[in-house]
Simulated scan of single mutants.
Amino acid sequence: MTLASPADTTVHGAYPAQTRLAATRAEERPDYPFQGRIGTGEFPAEPDRYHLYSAWTCPYAQRTAITRSLLALEDVITLSYVDDDRDGRGWAFREHRGPDPVNGFAFLSEAYDATEPGYPGHISVPVLWDKFTGEIVSNHYPDITLDLATRFEKWADPEVSLYPKKLRPQIDELNDHIFENVNTGVTRVAAARTQQEYEDARAKVIEAFESLDARLADSRFLLGDSLTESDVRLWVSLIRFDAASNPQAGISERTLKEFPRLWSYTRALYELPAFRDTTDLEAVSRGATPLETPGVTRIRVEPSQPV
């Protein structure tokens, strides 16, 4: 097994490597171009065929690990983690999180290049890898969890249904709301370059928190008494709010505790092994240095443990 050399932004620069992203955008390709689906003729649902490359620090990658665990697919789909630290070479495999157990790659970019030689684009997690064909099935994170939830039912816990047919229209609508106003909402606060952009972006996140807090007044989960895909998508942002995104970007003077139903909901889900065992609170809180953006005065919030 090969391990990458330590991350070094002085030598290799910070990620993203501009040459890769520039090439992707010049070709007008999506940042997540591998969009194969499980259940097709090319990628049938089979046990011990697929592998997930994940990262403890990435909320989108954590969603796949939570889903895999909730469905009890640990013996069906293997999983490994890239290192927490990243430089201009992208995600890597180092001693802290262990080597790549499937291909022995030192860098995740090798999986991309094995799928498309000379691949110029974004090196992202999660990655769903086909061990039979030696290629990436998908790095399109919204599809991966849906395929885990619906294509491996033969081997999954029959008591768990994260994307039931009767609720799919409601789940899809709620997922869009969560993605726009929470998952990427916190990112837009951090990325704001003017005071008005900052105030508008953080107002949207706060409004979403208030509406979601109210939604939980009469139910255990977002869509009633059953845990769904929407809960997984929201929770990964909530667990990072007090420890990372809020102290870094200055989103709200209120901590998660001051949205009492969201706070109780976050803590209750953390008690479930699928959520707790896929969370590294130390990794979540790393890199929460308050942003300094010329022309933007951000509120200051001290980081705190989310649960």
Rank of each mutant, 00 (worst) to 15 (best):
E110I: 05
S80R: 00
S230V: 13
F105D: 04
K257F: 07
A65I: 09
G295Q: 07
R97P: 06
G287C: 10
L272G: 09
A23H: 08
K166S: 15
D213F: 03
I171A: 10
W235I: 15
S226C: 04
V160G: 01
L223Y: 02
T293W: 07
L222R: 01
R188V: 14
G134H: 01
D83G: 09
I144Y: 03
P169Q: 14
D100A: 00
V232H: 13
F179Q: 05
I178R: 00
E95G: 05
D176Y: 13
T40K: 10
F221G: 03
R94Y: 04
A26D: 14
G41Q: 12
T228K: 06
A203L: 10
I77R: 08
E302A: 14
L21V: 06
T228Y: 06
I136L: 10
T278N: 08
F105Y: 13
A45Q: 07
D75Y: 14
Y119P: 07
L223M: 12
E271N: 09
D225K: 12
G121A: 14
A288Y: 06
P120A: 10
L291M: 14
A288E: 00
L256T: 02
A190S: 15
G36P: 06
L146T: 15
L167H: 14
Q18M: 12
W235R: 06
Q196I: 13
Y163F: 15
V284K: 01
D176S: 15
E302L: 12
P273M: 12
A45P: 03
N183F: 11
Y119N: 09
Y112E: 01
I66C: 06
A214G: 00
V11A: 11
G88M: 05
E229T: 13
R254H: 07
P294S: 02
F179R: 03
P290A: 10
S264Q: 15
L256V: 10
E229F: 03
D157C: 10
D225M: 04
S264D: 15
G90E: 05
A268N: 14
R298S: 02
S230F: 09
A106M: 08
Y81K: 00
P260M: 10
S304H: 06
Y60G: 08
R254Q: 07
T187Q: 12
T255P: 02
R193I: 14
L21G: 01
T279H: 05
F152T: 04
K131F: 05
Y270C: 07
T255D: 06
D172G: 00
T2G: 02
N103Q: 03
E210R: 08
A274W: 01
D8I: 07
Y15I: 08
D85G: 00
C58W: 08
Q248D: 02
Y32A: 08
L281F: 11
P16A: 11
P101D: 12
A149M: 09
Q62S: 10
D113F: 11
T297Q: 11
A22L: 13
